[in-house]
Design a protein around this nucleic acid. Structure first.
Lengths: 170, 170
DNA sequence: CTTTTTTCATTCGCATCCTAACGAATTGGA
DNA sequence: TCCAATTCGTTAGGATGCGAATGAAAAAAG
C-alpha cells in the first residue's frame, strides 16, 4: 500500500477497514469533510492572497476582528478567533511589530488590554478584504447557489452546538 | 466597543461595516462559518478525547491515515493530512518517540520513507476511534439527519475545487 | 477594611507549522 | 555514459499553537 490516493480511493479504503465496526459513516463524513474543506480553503487563501501581503492566517483573522469592532479586548479577540490567550499574545506582538495594530491598557480595568488598528492596519484591511471576498465567491461557487445559505447555517449550528459544551477557560 | 459578543452580534456588526462595499455576504458566510465550525469541532474533540490520550490533533490525523493504509509513504501522508512535508517530519518524530509508529526506508527507492503503526499504535487507534466516532455523531446531530449527507457532499465539493487550483509543491 | 478568590495578560517549555535551503537518490536527456 | 534536472525527506529559522505557572489587578467574602 503506497503512493498517492484520490479522495474516492481513501473513502473506499476507509469503508473497507471499518466494515463491521458499527461506525456512523454519515457523521464521520460530515466531520472529516469539514476539516478537509477548511484545510484546502485555508491553503488556497494563504497562497492566493495572504502570502502576498506578508500576513499569516491567524494574523489576518485577528486584524479582521479588530477591524470589525474598532476597539476590542484581547480576551474577546481570543474567543472570536478561536485561539488561546497565550497564542494570541504572540500574534499580537507580530502584528504590533509590523505596525498594523496598537495595544492600550484599559483605564477602567487595568488588567485589560484594548487593541485598535493603526491607519496602516485599516489601509491593509480595506485593500485586502475585497480581494479576499472575491476568492470566497470563487470557493463558494463549488456549492450550488441555492444551497449556500443552507450549508452556512448548518455549519453555524455545529459551531454553536460544539461551543455550548465548552464553558471553559481558553 | 468592548466585551464578549455572540455570533449574532458579530454578524450584525459585520453587515453594518460592509454595507455599500459590494460584498457577497453569502459567500462570506460559507467561508467564515466553515472556519468557525472547524475550530469549534477541533477544540471539542481535542478536549473530550485526544488530550486524555496525549495526542495532538495532527498526531491523531496522521495515525488515522497510517492506520487506514497500513503502510504509506511520508509524501502521501503529508498530502492526505494537508500539511507540508517539513511539518510532517516533526510530527512523525514525536509519534515515533512515543512508540506509535515506525519509519522504514524503501528498498525500491531509497529516497522514500515508509510509515507503519506499531502494535501500540494499532491498539491506540482501535480504542480511540470508536470514542471519536461517538463524538462525531454528537457533533453531526446539530444538523438535521436528512441534511447531513448534503452538507458532507458540499464540503467535499469545496475541497476538490480548492485543491484543483493547487497543483503545487507542499 | 482586610483577606481570599477570581480574572486577566504574559511568560515558559515544548509541539506544530511554514518556506527556503540542503544533500542524497533517481530520472531523463545528450 | 554522464550529467543536468527532478524528486525525496530533513534541517534551519521564525511564527503560531497549547497548557500550566506567574504576577498584577479587581471582585467577593468576611
Amino acid at each position: 500500500m503506497a503512493g498517492a490516493h484520490t479522495l474516492s480511493e481513501t473513502e473506499r479504503q476507509v469503508s473497507t477497514l471499518l466494515k463491521g465496526m458499527n461506525i456512523d459513516f454519515k457523521a464521520m463524513a460530515v466531520v472529516s469533510n469539514l476539516f478537509r474543506a477548511a484545510s484546502a480553503v485555508r491553503n488556497h487563501l494563504e497562497r492566493e492572497i495572504l502570502s502576498r501581503h506578508g500576513l499569516s492566517w491567524t494574523g489576518f483573522v485577528v486584524l479582521w476582528v479588530v477591524w470589525v469592532w474598532e476597539s476590542i479586548e484581547t480576551r474577546t479577540i481570543a474567543e472570536e478567533v478561536g485561539t488561546s490567550k497565550a497564542s494570541l499574545t504572540g500574534v499580537l506582538k507580530t502584528l504590533e511589530r509590523d505596525g498594523l495594530i496598537i495595544k492600550k491598557q484599559s483605564k477602567i480595568d487595568r488588567r485589560l488590554v484594548l487593541v485598535t488598528l493603526t491607519s496602516d492596519g485599516r489601509r491593509m484591511m480595506k485593500k485586502i478584504f475585497p480581494e479576499f471576498n472575491k476568492e470566497e465567491i470563487f470557493l463558494a461557487s463549488f456549492i450550488k447557489p441555492a444551497e449556500q445559505r443552507g450549508v452556512a447555517d448548518a455549519l453555524r449550528g455545529i459551531t454553536v452546538g460544539a461551543k455550548r459544551e465548552n464553558l471553559k477557560k481558553n
